[in-house]
Amino acid sequence: MHPAKAAQGLADVVVARGARLHEGTRVRSIEPRVVRTDHGTVRARHVVRATEAWTSQAPGSRREVVPVYSLVVATEPLPAHVLDEVGLAQGETFSEHRNVIVYGQRTADGRIVFGGRGAPYHWRSAIEPRFDEEPRVFAAIERYLHQMLPATAPYAITHRWGGPLGIARDWHAAVRHDPATGLASAGGYVGDGVTTTNLAGRTLADLLTGADTELTRLPWVGHRSPRWEPEPARWLGVNAGLQVARAADAVEQRTGRVTPLSRVLARLTGH
């Protein structure tokens, strides 16, 4: 699927049903049944916060998630025989069980989109457009792609982009609603939000309307993750975890065996 087209299509549907969208409006605070913005105050029976990585920018919420960047590249359209050779003729998706995650899939027009982690965590959970581009990480992602699928090496990389993910301290997504205050939230998808947000939205709809369904009884409903450590422990811990992950991948690639470094990483990430 095409995530941007899915989001635009959803927006078109809700606007057609009477919803109003106010893009580019900075929210200063969220309170029970109240949202205060640069352009005025909004009052509502329910206030749903669904800000994912940007939750870390809100006052009082800096330690709820950390924004960790995932970067992506895309090849030029590949000949059918190359897609068949690498096993992607039918649009399969793929990944590799390394600690520094990589993932990919074929697009409708025959490209391979391939991405991964590896960008550093920025001090105090900073999010800036320039962080979407890390030449060193893009180079590593391209190198991993050509290692996994050597047949792609002769073809050009035509697109590079990225953005921050929202990661909870226990890597556990959550959907919450407090009927007493009208406050609700969903997030912590750790990069799996394209599909998980759809389930979260349907779950929130049932919670807000008071329905008792299979969705409202899912384990993530009401879950609360521990808060991330304050700085500088957060910066040191997240970036140390990244270095441990890289070291573990290097050892495991060389030896073909799981290294104790992977167990250290599991303790650092809490899962």
Rank of each mutant, 00 (worst) to 15 (best):
V14W: 05
R20Q: 12
P32M: 01
V35G: 01
D38H: 05
H39V: 12
V42Y: 15
A50D: 08
T55H: 00
P59K: 01
P67C: 06
S70Y: 02
V73M: 11
A80I: 13
A80R: 13
E85A: 13
L88N: 00
T93M: 14
I101Q: 07
V102K: 03
I112R: 00
I112F: 01
G115S: 07
R117S: 04
R117L: 04
R124P: 02
R130L: 05
E133H: 14
E134S: 10
R136P: 06
A139P: 07
R143L: 14
Y144V: 12
L145C: 05
L149V: 15
P150N: 05
A151Q: 15
P154Q: 07
T158C: 05
I167S: 00
A168K: 04
A168R: 05
W171L: 15
H172W: 10
H172V: 14
G182W: 01
Y189T: 07
V190L: 12
V190D: 00
A200G: 07
A200F: 12
D206P: 11
A211P: 02
E214A: 10
L215S: 04
P219Y: 04
W220C: 09
H223N: 09
P226C: 01
R227M: 11
G237R: 13
Q243H: 10
A250P: 02
E252H: 05
G256E: 06
G256D: 13
R257V: 12
V258T: 14
P260H: 09
S262L: 08
S262D: 10
R263E: 15
